[in-house]
């Protein structure tokens, strides 16, 4: 099957305020397959947000290429197709809601691409139902919780017809309840509607639920694999400034002091079972 997102030798150089070149991405080659749930982790400044913006053609490669559903982001004719196919959800829940009424905001994307009124209404309703926000369709966004606002943002991408959603630290500003809401919503969309998910996060517990975890450092992919593979490499993660989940760390320390534990312990349940 054709990958949803494919990058080859992707390099991105920013020119900062003092005219210095900042290499934010340095040769990224990766593929994301349809229906995958991929988590991207990495320390601050490792290039996660820059990478995410390439998936939506908000940034264009300095070198190398990005293909979204087979379409090259460098070709301007592909721009609107790409932005429909890959939706973006950003970190700050307030700063991505455009309209003063929930359903008007969800309609913003499809309105931009000229979806006819009747279909638009259906899309908005379906999208709000999918994120469980239909009851709030006529509410003012500023009265919603952070988690609810982010779900409205997710609905906005669904209404646009996105088959792939890229979320850039969507839970960073939310409370634990909101975090759970967003993760559950994305798991459900991934499971039931086969939405491909690229989920950037600095919460390792969220990355545990992904099919694949990509670890970034200094603009490069450091290593990747299943959550089990990635989070078992406790010391390597630590060197990159990332903290493995507590269970993985405990198992790691126990093993170091000679305990015989099976490999791949990353959740509390697995740790408890191994110690029982």
């Amino acid at each position: 099957m054709e990958p949803v997102i494919e990058t080859q030798g992707l390099k991105h150089v920013y020119i900062d305020a003092d005219n210095n070149q900042v290499t934010a991405l340095d040769g990224i080659g990766m593929q994301i397959q349809p229906g995958e749930f991929v988590a991207v982790i990495g320390a601050n400044g490792s290039g996660k947000s820059t990478l995410a913006r390439h998936f939506n053609a908000l940034l264009l490669p300095t070198e190398g290429s990005v293909k979204v559903h087979g379409l090259d982001t460098l070709d301007e004719n592909n721009l609107w197709r790409i932005r429909q196919d890959t939706g973006m959800v950003f970190q700050n829940p307030d700063n991505q809601i455009v309209a003063a009424i929930v359903e008007e905001d969800v309609a913003f994307g499809p309105e931009n691409i000229g979806v006819p009124t009747e279909e638009l209404k259906k899309r908005v309703e379906d999208a709000l139902r999918a994120v469980d926000m239909l009851d709030y369709r006529e509410h003012a966004p500023h009265l919603l919780s952070g988690g609810q606002k982010q779900r409205v943002a997710i609905a906005g991408t669904l209404a646009l017809g996105s088959k792939c959603i890229v979320l850039d630290e969507p839970t960073a500003m939310l409370d634990p309840k909101g975090r759970k809401e967003i993760l559950n919503t994305m798991k459900k969309l991934n499971r039931e509607q086969h939405i491909t998910v690229v989920y950037i996060t600095h919460f390792m517990t969220e990355a545990l639920l992904a099919d694949r975890v990509i670890v970034m450092s200094k603009g490069k992919i450091e290593f990747q694999g299943t959550p089990k593979e990635v989070f078992s490499r406790v010391d390597e993660l630590e060197k990159l400034g990332l903290e493995a989940p507590l269970a993985a760390k405990v198992a790691f320390e126990l093993r170091k002091s000679g305990a015989k534990l099976p490999p791949g312990i990353i959740t509390n349940e697995e740790l408890a079972a191994a110690l029982a």
Binding site: M88, I113, T117, L120
Partner: peptide, 22 residues
């Protein structure tokens, strides 16, 4: 932030825009 979010949602001015509530 908002400008980037609007661009990501295919905003390109009033040309060819439809409205949900006609």
């Amino acid at each position: 932030d908002l400008a980037v979010a609007m661009e990501a949602r295919c905003y390109r001015g009033g040309e060819g825009r439809t409205r949900m509530h006609q």
